[in-house]
Write a protein that binds this DNA or RNA. Structure first.
Lengths: 142, 142
DNA sequence: TTTCGTGCAAATGGTTTGCAGTGGC
DNA sequence: GCCACTGCAAACCATTTGCACGAAA
């Protein structure tokens, strides 16, 4: 199903193993980035013997090679395919996570960073806010 | 030293205890947000009996009351005084962390978020990039 | 056949929690 | 004196690591 996603592995000199291909397929179908625990649950539902530490090692390796990208939130790390450059908006209230194309955000943020001598990371920024539904749901939130 | 920082505690109905006042003083003098472990090290150098869990509880409570703000990075949480609204730029390479006034970032990012129905958090955004020094230091970084 | 990748189990590090005692107000 | 706050110790949870076996190339 992945078509050419796993081709990338070969090009990088990474072996095509069951855990790796399964992770790539799952992330390719997922609408949002997944945690390692989520990934492990999904992987083991098809291949029960795959170990949690194997999932950890693979997302780390593939992130290092640029195949995946990661964002930190709520004390854990989420992983997604590094396809089109994009960042994320997360709702602090309900956890809703959506992607925004990098070029929508780049000019604005890059300018702010450049003023401080920083060069912006091209992907994986995580911006915190409150989504439409949660804005309306709780006006009197504690 | 803190002058009126700890006044806030009284106004919120929080007791003025040694751990709390010490934490507030330390954060008031710090140039950047501090981790709980850093805070604990500093607090205990003056009051050795203060427990780590007490520091954890206090930063959590004071963050909930809006006295402190927090940012997550590298698997741990950093805390700072919630004074002027601001966000942070962090260098992914050396960890340099600097503050940017909220109003420098707000218009740009708020617009991007609003397009997705999000309302931006007024403080505590963490933007990842590479600082001036690290941009020049390693052209051929691994 | 030679690495690279994996399963397993144990360790690590940040953070949270239950409980009984104590200090702030 | 009441109750929020604390110290202590144990538990928790995400993540990492050492090691011997197994599989991709």
């Amino acid at each position: 199903m992945s078509g050419d996603i796993d081709e990338a592995l070969v090009g990088l000199g990474l072996r095509r193993t069951v855990p790796r291909l399964t992770i790539l397929n799952l992330l390719g179908e997922a609408a949002t980035p997944l945690s390692v625990l989520d990934l492990h649950r999904l992987v083991t539902s098809a291949y029960p013997m795959v170990n949690l530490s194997t999932v950890y090692r693979n997302v780390t390796v593939m992130t290092g090679y640029g195949v995946l990208h990661s964002i930190e939130h709520g004390g854990q790390t989420l992983y997604g395919l590094a396809t089109t450059p994009h960042h994320h908006l997360i709702c602090e209230h309900c956890g809703l996570l959506i992607e925004v194309p990098a070029d929508r955000l780049d000019p604005a943020v890059a300018q702010v960073m450049a003023d401080s001598g920083f060069k912006m990371e091209p992907t994986g920024q995580l911006l915190r806010g409150r989504c439409r539904r949660c804005r309306h749901a709780v006006h009197d939130a504690s």
